[in-house]
Amino acid sequence: MIDWRNLSADWLDARKLASNPPNLRNAFVIALLAILALLPIYSALTGNYFLVTLFTRILILALAAVSLNLIMGFGGMVSFGHAAYLGIGGYVVGILAKEGINSGFVQWPLALIVSGLFALGVGALCLRTRGVYFIMITLAFAQMVYYVAIGLDRYGGDDGLTINKRSQFIDAVNLSNKTVFYYVCFALLLAVVYLVWRLVNSRFGLVIQGARSNDRRMRAIGFPTFRYKLVCFVIAGVLCGLSGVLLANHTSFISPAMMQWTRSGDLIVMAVLGGMGSVFGPVVGAVAFLLLEEVLSSVTEYSGIILGPMLLGVVLFARGGIDGILKDHSRG
């Protein structure tokens, strides 16, 4: 069983930050945010632009992991098909670009709407099931989208499609500029983390958490839990769709591989590794996972051999993930 104790999401709780003496956990978050904020400056000074590219990817997938954790960590809905929304968001951008529509004002909203509608359909069916069935059905839907993408010959089929132009906004926001794009991703990640944090502590969020904790009792005290879970599922889908939009713009390329089931697995790993009990945990998890993957893949082809047991260790010995470890050390 997963440890669901740390629900309060107090990583971001300004009240606690103010009233408690600085602790390890808060110090860690602040340090991480500072590093992320200053990274492009460091890159500019050293001329190491690879770092910006790597961390842009990390920010984007962190956003996806945060959105997954909204349903998985807080709602107890373990989706094994979350990468489908990365693909959907990405393909809407890619297809529109191919058809000559480059305006971000069209691409982005449309991508979010399609992601939301897909989540609505999947959720309406999946949320009638529980446990392993839920996991399998979300996976099945994601695989369906994956094969649909392979079948889209006009848009590259199996090989994917290069996007010639990143989404166009006003001149001041030129996404083709790596630094600008990095900061757009960073700002969106922060905005989503803040939004999710507000959400999980709101009335809606408590219903979602209550349904995870004891759905039967929630219904007994008068909550039609299904509709709340469905809305939550859709919100998570839309947020992950946004991540897909960013990913397509980042790589200037879309392909079915964006939504391979292993990617869905990676997102789960990021959330578990970082800590599902807090809103910010998955960001830490994404940074840790993707950096490790990067480092290990430069050493060995089989990074999974090291990553796998590590994850097992986290699940067995540090159930709250990295966040949980930091929290425990912050108490003393």
């Binding site: 709101s202 009335r203 969020g205």
Partner: peptide, 28 residues
């Protein structure tokens, strides 16, 4: 709800009968 406080438990029951809970922003 074992992972909530006693007050949280009862507050949820109150909330269930205080209109709909599609309120996404304020700290409940």
């Amino acid at each position: 709800f074992p992972d909530f406080t006693a007050l949280d438990n009862v507050a949820l029951a109150v909330q269930a009968h205080a209109g709909h809970s599609f309120e996404f922003w304020h700290d409940a």
